[in-house]
Design a protein around this nucleic acid. Sequence first.
DNA 1: TTTGCTACTTACATGCAAGTAAGTATCTTT
DNA 2: AAAGATACTTACTTGCATGTAAGTAGCAAA
Lengths: 201, 201
Amino acid sequence: MQVSIFVLPTQKNMTTKDKIIELGRDYVQRLGYHSFKYQLIANDLNIKNAAIHHYFPAKEDLGVAIIEKDRSDFKLLTESIKKHPLKDQAEALLTLYINYYNQKKNLCIVGACVSAFAELPEKMALASQNHLETIQTWLINLLKQGQASGEFRFKEKPEDLAALWISALPGALQSAQIKGEAHLMQVITQLRQTLKTQQPT
Amino acid sequence: MQVSIFVLPTQKNMTTKDKIIELGRDYVQRLGYHSFKYQLIANDLNIKNAAIHHYFPAKEDLGVAIIEKDRSDFKLLTESIKKHPLKDQAEALLTLYINYYNQKKNLCIVGACVSAFAELPEKMALASQNHLETIQTWLINLLKQGQASGEFRFKEKPEDLAALWISALPGALQSAQIKGEAHLMQVITQLRQTLKTQQPT
DNA sequence: TTTGCTACTTACATGCAAGTAAGTATCTTT
DNA sequence: AAAGATACTTACTTGCATGTAAGTAGCAAA
């Protein structure tokens, strides 16, 4: 299920527009929305600043495109594994964050958005709201299925547990910048235990 | 134990320097470090921009002062309640975050620092590292005491549980901007349950 | 072949935030 | 009363990021 940790940000057969979105997402996840600049992407692609404005007139437009790409990727991922055991599906979310850490991306896109929310353009605020909603809904559903099937045996409300997961993961990824990978793994260990899956004997 | 939710950011008997730190902390918690500007504080205090540079030559200097003030306040708070029941001491941390939310501060200082960490001046990075360390150490200690006394009956390692708390609280505060107060309360509910305190019958 | 579209470059305008240098008013100490 | 320190203001520099206007090169369709 896990392909490669070090995915190349851009590939030859991608259009410039798509490369801009990919590189933009990278920088947003490393630096945050307000600290990422068109110039960084322009340098990487050996094009001029204004070329990016050709595709995305305002930074806000690129911001929205990045969020929607990330949301779309999330949907593709969850769709592709929806027949897998529920525990594996939950693990896929955890793996996502471990991969971010290994790629030195200490913000997930949703985390980057909420941590800059007060200064976010309105369209980006709406897009990030939709993105978070998508993740939350998927997770709640997963937890409900697991509770119903007995694959998970937690006593809490699925909504409450989902809230914990979608707060703790972005938070742990952020603080792992200071406390290191072990910190992220401690949080993930705790989250795994909340599911109360059958212990392998 | 809880004084007033709506504490005035500055008071008459404070020095200008202290007012700058307090207002700075407010703005950092609302906007994030890179989005808060000297001009905002200058307007609030009816002074000129350059007056702030008189006290804090570089923005980084004010940043460090804000973090150290926050850390100092945290130490004062925990010191002042160290004789209280352990459960109440844990509740005090939760209350801190509920108060932040009610004051529309959707970043704690540590959260503001880690979410902007890659672009943070070195002195601020160190200061925030110390701040986080202080909170973590306090919490681990509290959990260990509670485990020893039987006031808490969790089975996890105190370190792991502490990691969850200090990731989930900043994360929940941030995402509460999108998902509302109920979301924060769901996370807090889950964290309370991790302590496995005696249920009141 | 000419018309037009796509994908850019060149060159520039704008605005803003950080920071500095020099001056002034007031209060403090000797 | 003189000297210095404190708490600012005025006026300015610098640099950078966003964004725009106008031009160009190449391919694509009519």
